[in-house]
């Protein structure tokens, strides 16, 4: 793995994902304020809007990316033995991947129902 992949790129992704999440949060709050009625059917309709669906999905991808970079940093800082570090990274990676698959299922079900 090149040194840039381990150094600069995660740092860039951390910034890009944080920026996206900040902008998405503003968009989400404004959307909720201007919702015709603040109830479940309107909320569901907002989520089923394909543009919003894409924004939400990208938002969660960014959240997982941000979480991965952060947790990788913590593990690299504090866990030094390579075997335990690899195990911790693998478990966190698998946990995030499982969350992503679960989220995909939830969103698809909400859109397709």
């Amino acid at each position: 793995m090149s040194r840039q992949v381990q150094g600069l790129l995660p740092w860039i992704w951390q910034r890009v994902s944080a920026l996206y999440l900040a902008l998405f949060l503003i968009y989400f709050v404004i959307s909720m304020i201007f919702l015709d009625q603040f109830d479940y059917p309107h909320w569901l309709a907002w989520i089923r809007n394909p543009v919003n669906g894409i924004f939400i999905y990208i938002g969660f991808l960014m959240l997982f990316t941000h979480a991965w970079v952060g947790i990788k940093d913590v593990i690299m800082d504090y866990i030094h033995p390579i075997a335990i570090r690899s195990l911790a990274l693998m478990l966190c990676g698998l946990g995030l991947l499982a969350c992503l698959l679960w989220l995909t299922r939830v969103l698809l079900m909400a859109i397709l129902k």
Binding site: R3, Q4, Q6, G7, L8, P10, W11, D73, M76, D77
Partner: peptide, 14 residues
């Protein structure tokens, strides 16, 4: 800059 690349030398700074 090449010397500073990688996960440790520079990017351990949080």
């Amino acid at each position: 800059l090449q010397e500073l690349e990688g996960p440790y030398r520079l990017f351990r700074c949080h």
